[in-house]
């Protein structure tokens, strides 16, 4: 365990830029909700939320700077969640 694994220092400008991006995306998501796109609305909202959360995970939560193992772990967890949600719809959509 001699490796230096205390990580990378993220500069304040980067953090503030991410914060601004998050605010802008929030504004976009509120604006998009005012336009009636039918079923598409929910997907637009989820899409923007996913972009926002990717930013938080990658930068605020340092995922971008972690070892690949962490990224694999995250993928496994997200995939599991997607399966739990998706497979339920095999029932719900075809009832």
């Amino acid at each position: 365990m001699s490796e230096h694994d205390k990580g990378h220092i993220i500069g304040y400008p980067v953090l503030i830029a991410v914060w601004l991006a998050l605010l802008i995306l929030t504004a976009i998501t509120v604006a998009a909700a005012q336009i009636d796109l039918g079923e598409l609305n929910i997907w637009v909202a989820l899409g923007i939320a996913s972009v926002k959360s990717s930013l938080v995970i990658a930068v605020f939560m340092h995922m971008k700077y972690e070892k690949p193992l962490f990224q694999v772990f995250l993928l496994v967890a997200l995939l599991t969640l997607a399966i739990f949600i998706g497979f339920t719809f095999f029932d719900v959509l075809y009832r």
Partner: peptide, 18 residues
């Protein structure tokens, strides 16, 4: 094993697709 929970529910009124 995480993909098969529905087999406890064959008679519960779940959709045939499921």
């Amino acid at each position: 094993g995480s993909l098969v929970w529905g087999h406890h529910m064959f008679t519960s009124g779940m959709s045939d697709m499921a």
